[in-house]
Design a protein around this nucleic acid. Structure first.
Lengths: 348, 348
DNA sequence: CTGAAAGCGCTTACAG
DNA sequence: CTGAAAGCGCTTACAG
């Protein structure tokens, strides 16, 4: 069988007809014998057209290994279908899980993730400006806040910003959090119900709203129940931070309180290892411990951490809603709170 | 002081002059009294121009909060400065670390990451085609391989593909791995040196080259030393996989071998927890155990896992080199291997 | 050193 | 239902 040399047979080699990397809609139009506009319509399901023409175009496209250039499409349609995701806390597996779930959900909606790891909050300004140059459809920020002028810049550019596990009062900036204050109160109640009467909170720096709110709920509920001397230890949000925090707690108090609330499971793992390996304490006999996030490690039998569970899937649903819905942000509901539940295991 | 109404004063409001979301180079050109081409040049450091003209343009741009549209720039310059990253294994913190390091390195080079989590290898074909539509500058794939026709597609499109911790024989596809075979051999030698004479390998499915190669090095070195009966347990690359694998090992062998090589630290943690909590075994007294990756958990005192360290930073350097260098891929060096080192801790 | 103009690969009114 | 044409916001030869 002889293959036509003219290049307009459907049995094409698939090689680019132009000098660049790919075939374009013009190449497909030539091969299918239609206009370039018709090729464009054939790839847009919303465009009504003659089904047999569409099929002819798609066959030609497939012979030429053509697919529309998403960049050119973005330029003319003024929408990139790209969402920027900024994460600070990749050492906490909780956020690694959030990222994979986001990726799957967004991809099923035809959206892409432009990913940024923030090593230093001082880089936030550069980062936001860099992101805005890519004309993203939205920005999701986990565990970091914005300065209010950066928030204003995003609002000015008409780019929706959603904070995950942080919140701020700037109009136009949406936030999705779990109800950290209530979880703190629930933790106090749970410890009380179990009969504990001496406590401590081991958390992160107080500027982080998660830590601040968990502590506030915990301490204020204890006060309502007549406990006014709950020690609060500030320490980094890490395993090492947990170990170090536990050492400081014992130095400071002289003896170990009976019930410890840790700001995260990672901190909790550090507390447990330090208590056991450096002080020979048994958990929960000598001290009960509760963590937060219910990361996989919490279920490992070496730890078996009783931990607060965030309703991650519902929170992600809400984030995507806010990020991608066409409706203008209503000024009224800037913060959506989701309740946590306690998953009891061996440590409390 | 009276602000000019004409709109061509530098004391502009910063509001978009056009009806869309942002000011464009044309708005800046008007304000600065230059041509649009000159605005473009002012933002390209490589373009030589009168410094005072450049400054006037940059001032006008800043007054209008203008920055070049990266999408439009991508279209005309035929380079998006976007690299696609595909990850399968986000539950393994090793890859979370790789991702954050990649993010920092790429951003410092003015490149962005388009991130994809692969939940199902069957989705790879759709994924690659989706990525190619975005005209990325390169594709990095961790812990997954491509079918050879997908690899060919990428090569056809002129998009460099680099595999991280996988390799394949397709021309044009580069790979960066640690030397898993050698690490397996080193592990056998280390156990031998410590006096152990009964062994097992607990790993992932054998199609994964990491697991395959670590097993091969380990088993073949044992054979060179006269051990021909090393049991090999296939189990998922997870904590639960480790627990389950250890149970199967004991069922199968009746008694626990003295020296266990685990394909990853996560699997190793499962093995340790199962050995301790379900069988009451002590490590390393009853059995020595070695893991792989040196994730943070390996250093936790509850585990203290002796583990192989991959030279992550050097490997990432090489990956970026291959992904971004202009030079054509040389057919000769498809695979770059990096040596691992053993970090000894409590378990062996 | 700077401007006018072409063009990157699409989408989408506007006609017919 | 389809085509001709304008235009998205840039970069970059090509002149002057």
């Amino acid at each position: 069988m002889k293959i036509s040399d003219s290049g307009d047979s459907i049995q094409n080699t698939g090689k680019r007809a132009n000098g660049r990397g790919h075939n374009t809609s013009i190449d497909v139009a030539k091969l299918a014998g239609v206009s370039q506009a018709t090729v464009s319509r054939a790839f847009n399901p919303a465009s009504k057209m003659n089904p047999s023409t569409r099929q002819r175009v798609l066959d030609a496209a497939s012979a030429l290994k053509y697919a529309p250039d998403a960049i050119a499409r973005s330029l003319i349609s003024n929408s990139t279908n790209i969402v920027a995701v900024i994460m600070q806390n990749t050492t906490n597996p909780f956020y690694a899980t959030v990222l994979s779930k986001l990726s799957i959900r967004l991809r099923s909606m035809g959206k892409q993730i432009l990913f940024f790891y923030l090593d230093d909050e001082g880089h936030m300004k550069d980062l936001i400006h860099q992101i805005l140059q890519y004309r993203v459809d939205g920005i999701l920020i986990t565990s970091v806040t914005l300065t209010s002028d950066l928030a204003d810049t995003c609002v000015d550019f008409g780019v929706p910003v959603v904070l995950f596990n942080r919140y701020m009062n700037t109009p136009g900036i949406q936030a999705v959090c779990c109800d950290n204050v209530q979880a703190g109160r629930d933790c106090a109640d749970y410890f009380f119900m179990k009969g504990y009467r001496s406590f401590a909170f081991i958390g992160g720096h107080d500027e982080a709203s998660t830590s601040h709110d968990r502590r506030r709920g915990f301490v204020s509920r204890l006060e309502e129940r007549g406990i006014h001397d709950c020690p609060v230890i500030n320490t980094p949000f890490t395993y090492e931070g947990g170990r170090e925090g536990f050492r400081r707690l014992l130095e400071q108090e002289g003896t170990c309180p009976k019930a410890l609330f840790c700001v995260s499971d990672l901190v909790c793992a550090g507390v447990l290892d330090c208590a056991r390996s450096e002080y020979g304490l048994r958990v929960p006999e000598d001290a009960a411990v509760i963590g937060f996030d219910d990361i996989e490690l919490a279920s490992y039998s070496a730890y078996s951490i009783t931990s607060f569970v965030q309703p991650m899937d519902s929170m992600i649903d809400r984030v995507l809603d806010l990020l991608l819905s066409e409706k203008q942000p209503s000024e009224s509901t800037n913060l959506t709170l989701f309740p946590c539940t306690l998953k009891t295991r061996g440590t409390a």
